[in-house]
Design a protein around this nucleic acid. Structure first.
Lengths: 64, 64
DNA sequence: TTAAAATGTAATATATAAATTACATTCAGG
DNA sequence: CCTGAATGTAATTTATATATTACATTTTAA
């Protein structure tokens, strides 16, 4: 599942590890979401948005 | 977890059962998401958005 | 260059989303 | 009323998101 997480994270000047800590998950989870290999829960998506000061659409929306 | 699913579904003139079928889940899953008792996956959120012709922010965004 | 930091990813375990079955409650139309 | 459609929800099972541990690869800065 494609998303803009990697770009947004780098714009925020955070490593995967730092974002993972802000959000309360492991680095692996962040890595796999960036790679499109995980289907995260809404709660986690929202926590990532809050950490990066973005909205769901900005990071996770994909046209059908 | 709060969301605008119920309002959007009714605006689209669909029952929970009809939306569930469009999206490929059970009626119970839709009901529990509307009630804020489920934490759906991103994939399911997107499928709901496609079925209702809305974006993630319109249905699932909540300010921190 | 090379050493440390950052990232990718595999295997297994654990937590939890979603399905299934079932029944109760609410609500609109006849 | 009352009957059926729509909805709420509980118990159990199944599928899968996430954690954990571990190691390899890539990137970056001295």
């Amino acid at each position: 599942m494609r998303n803009n997480l990697k770009v947004a994270r780098i714009q925020a000047n955070l490593t995967q590890q730092q974002l993972a800590e802000k959000v309360g998950v492991t680095r692996q989870t962040i890595s796999l979401i960036e790679k499109g290999k995980y289907n995260p829960t809404l709660k986690l998506c929202l926590e990532i948005c809050y950490a990066l000061n973005k909205t769901l659409d900005e990071i996770f929306w994909v046209e059908k």
